[in-house]
């Protein structure tokens, strides 16, 4: 059974169909990538799954339960963790304290939350910087902190919104390894990603959106051969 099933999900913004009748599944334990050109509706789709937006129609089924329209905090407790495209860690707090905010989702005691936060930081390689003010982190580290905070909520499904954007190749390589380890530890990942090298390195399943509609869904090999995908990325002449 799929961990996440999105069924005919739609969202309108004042007449514009940002997401239109999108359906796909994310298998438990997999890494699935949601790709598509800018404005394809990927982030809107994420927001609908994570509860930041309510769908106009359609359903979101998580772990066999209909969770459509639940608020983000409730979805977090059910096991959906997410990162944001624009990272904004709490600058005055330390790296550890930032991660503890996530840990407090399931822990009420300070010491327990600290232990969970430390574990999450170690999984993304940030533990040596635990005592640093978050404001002093470099961009890749801030992105990893965002992932650590989401991991500290102990999610079953982790939604990653463009964690590789703006990173150099070497930096992205380290993050790919971290994400692979997180996935190997049992966390299912659904990622929005523009960096195709990363998508190909990680995902076994790719969903392609274009103008708010799903145009392809399959393994990396299937998707890269799909004429509709080639057209959407390269234009009509590229496909010819």
């Amino acid at each position: 059974m799929s961990l996440l099933a999105v069924e005919a999900l739609s969202r309108n913004f004042a007449g514009l169909r940002a997401v239109s009748e999108v359906s796909f599944c994310v298998e438990e334990g997999s890494i699935t990538a949601l790709i598509g050109p800018n404005g394809a509706g990927k982030t809107t789709c994420f927001n609908l799954i994570a509860g930041a937006l309510k769908p106009s129609s359609g359903r979101v089924i998580f772990a066999g339960e209909d969770v459509t329209g639940l608020p983000p905090e409730a979805l977090c407790l059910r096991g959906i963790g997410r990162t944001f495209q624009i990272v904004r860690p709490m600058p005055e707090l330390t790296v550890l304290e930032n991660a503890m905010v996530g840990a407090f989702a399931r822990e009420s005691r300070l010491a327990a939350a600290e232990a969970v936060a430390r574990e999450a930081l170690s999984r993304v390689g940030l533990l040596p910087k635990a005592g640093m003010p978050a404001a002093q982190l470099t961009l890749p580290d801030r992105k990893m902190l965002e992932v650590a905070r989401a991991l500290a909520t102990r999610p079953r499904l982790l939604l990653l919104d463009e964690v590789m954007a703006g990173l150099r190749a070497g930096e992205a390589g380290a993050i790919v390894e971290s994400l692979r380890a997180v996935n190997a530890a049992g966390v299912t990942i659904l990622m929005i990603e523009h960096v195709m090298r990363v998508v190909m390195a990680l995902a076994r399943h790719i969903v392609v959106l274009h103008h708010g509609e799903k145009i392809a869904d399959g393994t990396p090999e299937e998707v890269t051969r799909d004429p509709a995908v080639i057209r959407s990325y390269l234009g009509e002449r590229g496909a010819a």
Partner: peptide, 26 residues
């Protein structure tokens, strides 16, 4: 300041959407 409540309040102050996604009952 050194309790769950303090961390949650500061998370709301910094970024309400990120706080909610981290399970904070805003």
């Amino acid at each position: 300041r050194h309790s769950r409540m303090g961390y949650r309040l500061m998370a709301i102050r910094e970024d309400e959407d990120a706080a909610r996604a981290s399970g904070v009952p805003v």
